[in-house]
Amino acid sequence: MSGRTSHESANASAGDESAGSGFSLVAVLVFMLIVSAIVVPFAVTAKTRLMIANNEVEQERLSLLAEGLGNVVASELIDGLGAKIFELDFTPAACRAGDLSFDVRVQDHGGLINLNAADDTLLALGFASLGFERQTAQALAKAAIRFRDSAKPFAGKPQPRSPAGPPEDKQAPFESVSELQEFSALASMSLQDLHAVFTVNSERSTISADRAPNRLRAFLARGSSASVTEAAADASAYTVELVVRRDGAGITGEAGFIIKRSPADPKAFWRLSRSPVTAAAASPEAAGTAGCEVLFGAEAAQILQGWSS
C-alpha cells in the first residue's frame, strides 16, 4: 500500500514539474512576443531614419556639386567661352562622368522680355506664349504697364482696373519676375514658366528672337512688334541651371541662379538672384550630349571622373 502511494506521489510530482515547465515556456514565449512588439518598431524606425539621413547627405553632396559646376559655367560665360559651348536659348546640354549625369541650361536674358522696358505689344506676345487668349494677354500687358509706371498727376480720369491684374499697382519698376504672381490671372502660374518668358535684368526694350526659348520664339514669329530683333546683342545677364543625378539613386542635386558681369572686375561675375530650376529635366534624346570636358573643361572633368568612381 505504501509502495503504491509512493509511486502515485512520484507521478504527481512529475506532473507538477511538467506543468511548471509548460507554464514557464509559455511565459517566455509571451515575454519574447512583448519584447519583439516593442523592439521591432524601434528597429524599423531607426533603419528608416538612417535611410532618410543617407538620402539627405547624398542630396546635399549632389547639390554642392551642382553649385560648383554652375560657377564653372558662369565663369565660362563671362570669359566668352560659354557662347561657343552652350546654346543660349535654354536648350539643354548633357554629359556623363561615371555613374553621374549632368544637365545644363543657359538662358541669355536678351532672349527674354523685360517687364520694365517692353511695350504693350511685346508684353502681350509674352503672355500669349503662356497660353492666354489674345484678349486676356493684351489685358495683362496693359495691367503690367500700369503696375510698373509711376503715377502721373493731373493725367485725367484713371482707366478701370483689369480683373486680370493685381489688386493694387506698385507704381515702380518690377524688382522680380515673381511679382507677376500678384496678378490674379497669373497667381497659379509657376515661377519656372514666368522666368522662361520674362526678365527684369536685360536692360533692353527689345528681345533677340534667336536667343528666345523655343516656345516663346514661336509666338514672336506669329506676332508683329518692332521690339523683336533677329541679331543678338551683348548679354547683360544669364540664367544658369544645372541638375546632377546618380544612376539608380532617384536623388538629384540642383542649382539655378542669375548672373551678370561684375562692374568691378570684367573677368568676374555677380549672382543677382536664385532662379527656380526647371522641374522636368531633359531626356538624353532631347539634350545635346557632349563630353564633360567640353562643358566644364578638362580639369573639372578629370575631377568628376575620380569623384564618381
Score class of each variant (00 low, 15 high):
Met1His: 10
Ser2Gly: 13
Thr5Tyr: 06
Asn11Ser: 10
Asn11Thr: 05
Glu17Pro: 09
Ala19Ser: 08
Gly20Ser: 04
Ser21His: 08
Leu25Lys: 02
Val40Tyr: 13
Phe42Asn: 10
Lys47Pro: 14
Leu50Ile: 12
Met51Lys: 15
Met51Phe: 12
Ala53Val: 02
Glu56Ala: 12
Glu56His: 09
Val57Ala: 10
Leu64Pro: 04
Ala66Thr: 08
Glu67Asn: 14
Gly68Leu: 04
Asn71Gly: 13
Ala74Glu: 02
Leu77Glu: 00
Leu77His: 00
Ile78Trp: 11
Asp79Gln: 10
Asp79Glu: 12
Gly82Arg: 04
Gly82Ala: 02
Ala83Val: 05
Ile85Asp: 13
Ile85Arg: 05
Ile85Gly: 08
Phe86Cys: 01
Glu87Arg: 12
Leu88Ala: 08
Thr91Gln: 08
Thr91Gly: 11
Thr91Phe: 15
Ala93Lys: 03
Ala93His: 10
Ala93Gln: 08
Ala94Tyr: 09
Ala94Trp: 08
Arg96Tyr: 05
Arg96Pro: 14
Arg96Asp: 15
Leu112Asp: 07
Asn114Trp: 11
Ala118Ser: 00
Asp120Cys: 06
Leu122Gln: 01
Leu123Met: 03
Ala124Tyr: 04
Ser129Tyr: 11
Gly131Asn: 10
Ala137Asn: 07
Lys142Gly: 04
Arg146Trp: 05
Arg146Ala: 07
Arg146Cys: 10
Phe147Trp: 09
Ser150Tyr: 04
Ala155Gly: 03
Ala155Cys: 02
Lys157Met: 04
Pro158Gly: 09
Arg161Trp: 09
Ala164Gly: 02
Gly165Glu: 03
Gly165Cys: 03
Pro167Ala: 07
Pro167Ile: 14
Asp169Asn: 08
Gln171Val: 06
Gln171Asn: 15
Ala172Cys: 05
Phe174Cys: 01
Ser176Cys: 01
Ser178Gly: 02
Leu186Lys: 00
Leu186Cys: 06
Ser188Thr: 11
Ser190Trp: 14
Gln192Met: 12
Leu194His: 09
Leu194Trp: 03
His195Leu: 09
Ser202Glu: 07
Ser205Arg: 09
Ile207Arg: 09
Ser208Asn: 05
Ser208Thr: 03
Ala209Arg: 15
Asp210Glu: 12
Arg217Ala: 06
Arg217Leu: 08
Arg217Gly: 04
Phe219Ile: 07
Phe219Leu: 10
Arg222His: 08
Gly223Ser: 02
Ser225Val: 15
Ser227Gln: 13
Thr229Gln: 13
Glu230Thr: 12
Ala233Phe: 15
Ala235Tyr: 03
Ser236Val: 11
Glu241Lys: 03
Gly248His: 01
Gly250Lys: 00
Ala255Thr: 01
Gly256Cys: 02
Ile258Leu: 14
Ile258Asp: 01
Ile259Tyr: 01
Lys260Gln: 14
Ser262Asn: 05
Ala264Glu: 15
Ser273Trp: 03
Ser275Ala: 15
Pro276Gln: 02
Ala280Phe: 13
Ala281His: 07
Ser283Tyr: 07
Pro284Ser: 06
Ala287Asn: 02
Gly288Asp: 14
Thr289Ser: 11
Thr289Asp: 11
Ala290Cys: 05
Val294Pro: 12
Glu299Phe: 04
Gln302Met: 10
Leu304Thr: 04
Leu304Lys: 02
Gln305Lys: 14
Gly306Cys: 12
Trp307Glu: 14
Ser309Arg: 08
